[in-house]
Simulated assay, not measured.
Amino acid sequence: MNETSEYFLSADNNDPLGKHHTPSGISDRVAFRLTRMLRFLADLFFAKRYGHRAVVLETVAAVPGMVAGMVRHMRSLRRMEDDRATIRTLLEEAENERMHLMTFVEISRPSAFERLLILLAQGIFFTSFLILYVVSGRTAHRLVGYFEEEAVYSYGEYLAEVDSGRLENVAAPKIAIDYWQLPANARLRDVILVIRQDEAGHRDVNHRLANSYDV
């Protein structure tokens, strides 16, 4: 069984959100293996501290949509061709990921060390992703697609911890209630569900944009 098959079978195949794009070609394999390496590091550092993991990773997750939207915006100006729908989609993705971050900041209250880690991670990732997007937009979108697959899986694990009672199902912060139009008595479980659905949507958009380079 190869690396991809083992990864796919580790997910819940009964979960309609648990879709996986099988890598095809060098570009996909590079994106997939990089994602797995970063997932290993996140597991090593955060273990089951899912709220703190979300704070750090959502800071990074809000970068690709903004970078891709910016590059496409400049390309649209340079070529004098309209790319408005895709640019808007990518910028909305960045804003959505930012709201994920704002929500988990309220829930988890990051430490000073985690805030420093965020600064370092964001600076390194922004520069690296910008270079990657300019060199290969296909690989960049595929990488984000795999990032989002991992996000769906991680939020599924987070949900399981809450459902088992190992993590407290605290009240949802007001910022989340207002943004997702949740009931006033919404809990953490409700927040995880809507965020996991968001991540699944971003996964599908980025895999579709990666595929568009093959047309």
Rank of each mutant, 00 (worst) to 15 (best):
L90R: 05
A140G: 10
N2Y: 05
A121H: 02
N211M: 11
M80P: 00
M70I: 04
R109S: 08
E114Y: 07
A85M: 03
N2C: 11
M74I: 06
L101S: 01
G201L: 11
Y146M: 07
M66N: 06
V105W: 02
E95D: 03
H20R: 13
I192D: 13
L182G: 09
A47M: 08
L188F: 12
M1D: 05
L143Q: 10
T22H: 12
Y155L: 13
A121I: 01
S76H: 06
D82C: 10
A210E: 06
A94F: 01
D163M: 13
H100G: 02
E6Q: 14
F45S: 08
R29L: 06
A94K: 00
N169V: 03
Y153P: 00
G69A: 09
R49A: 13
L167E: 12
L90V: 00
T4W: 08
E114L: 14
K174P: 00
F8I: 13
I175G: 01
A176Y: 10
M74Y: 13
E114C: 01
V135K: 14
I124D: 00
H100Q: 04
T86V: 10
E148A: 07
R84M: 03
T86D: 03
Y133S: 12
T127D: 01
R189K: 13
L38N: 08
M102T: 00
P110V: 01
G123N: 08
Y146T: 05
H20Y: 13
V194R: 15
A151V: 10
S136F: 07
L132F: 05
L101F: 11
R203V: 10
E157M: 14
G25F: 04
T59C: 14
V30E: 02
V63W: 07
R88V: 04
Y155E: 04
A121K: 06
S154H: 14
F125D: 02
A47E: 06
F45D: 02
R72E: 11
G145W: 11
Y50V: 03
V55C: 13
V67L: 09
G51I: 08
A61H: 04
E93S: 07
I192K: 05
Y133E: 05
D15Y: 08
M37K: 11
R196M: 15
Y213H: 14
E95M: 06
S76G: 11
I107S: 02
R203E: 11
S136W: 06
L143T: 10
L77W: 10
A140W: 01
E199V: 13
I124E: 03
S76N: 05
F8C: 03
H100T: 01
Y179L: 07
L90D: 01
P64G: 05
E168K: 15
Y179I: 02
D43C: 05
F32Y: 14
Y213A: 12
I175P: 04
E81R: 15
A11Y: 06
Y7Q: 05
Y213F: 15
L41W: 10
